[in-house]
Design a protein around this nucleic acid. Structure first.
Ligand SMILES: [Mn+2]
Ligand SMILES: [Mn+2]
Ligand SMILES: [Zn+2]
Ligand SMILES: [Zn+2]
Lengths: 139, 139
DNA sequence: AACATTTTGCAACAAAGTTGCATTCTTTCT
DNA sequence: AGAAAGAATGCAACTTTGTTGCAAAATGTT
């Protein structure tokens, strides 16, 4: 069963404010990752740009959302799984997909990042894999 | 044998200007990937910010450099291999590494990106893998 | 309800990136 | 070598993105 925004905020020890709830609900109902700009477009009438920046930052720190690396200089965010930050740092271990056709970026929650053998001397701490191509909807 | 900046510019059908040569030489002599800001710091006295932006854009289009995805909103660039753009689009198929200690990002040219099995309906066109951890020099 | 603590909005600012245009530099052609 | 055409550069102005300080408002706790 999916947690509600109130439940998530409460379990992260965050005070329940209208802005946080709104932004979190946007994530909960979005099938794809969102950039700051996307959120601003949806609720710039109701909340200040600065509040959105700060809310995203807070969610990141609490392990509610994670960032997705990209080549285009746009940070995109998506919800973490429940147990994401239990150990103190993020461990979203799934592949991300960016569709060249519709432009959307999504978490492939079921697709684990494959391991890789690094040259001698390198120690991996986190591995990100971003696949681009054509998504299911655009196929 | 490594190509000189003049040779690279010539084989990309770009006119040989002092700015392009300087910036390309910076890449040729750098062991790690460079952000716009890094280049600006090195040669802001000699070349305008705008020129640096345009030069990087040109190099990208010609397949001389490629971008490296990141989570921090900073586009980093590194030299492509010789045969990178022969087919019309980039195919840098190597892993990238970002060191949490020294902050440098490098191409692991010898380390191929492992393949991954995507959910039904998704078609991969390009795969990026970015590993973070501790690099050889910082181990 | 009153208090202490957080969060928010606003304003001002800083940094990053883009665009148009006049000038300068490259390359080509004679 | 010199002229002409085309391309690259610098500058100014602007837009977009992100940050900071502070006063006002909202929240949670007693
Ligand atoms: Mn994800
Ligand atoms: Mn590379
Ligand atoms: Zn798509
Ligand atoms: Zn290092």
């Amino acid at each position: 069963m999916k947690k509600s925004s109130e439940e998530i905020l409460k379990s992260s020890a965050l005070s329940l404010t209208a802005g946080r709830k709104t932004i979190l609900d946007i994530f909960l109902s979005s099938p794809n990752a969102l950039a700051h700009q996307d959120i601003e477009t949806i609720c710039k009438e109701k909340y200040d740009r600065v509040t959105i920046y700060r809310t995203l930052q807070t969610f990141l720190e609490k392990g509610i959302i994670h960032t997705i690396p990209s080549s285009d200089n746009i940070t995109r965010y998506a919800l973490c799984n429940d147990d994401c930050i239990v150990t103190g740092h993020h461990h979203d271990n799934h592949v991300h997909f960016t569709c060249d056709t519709c432009g959307k970026t999504i978490c492939l929650d079921e697709t684990e990042v494959p391991s890789v053998h690094l040259p001698k001397g390198f120690r991996a701490h986190q591995i990100n894999m971003i696949v681009s191509g054509v998504c299911k909807s655009c196929a």
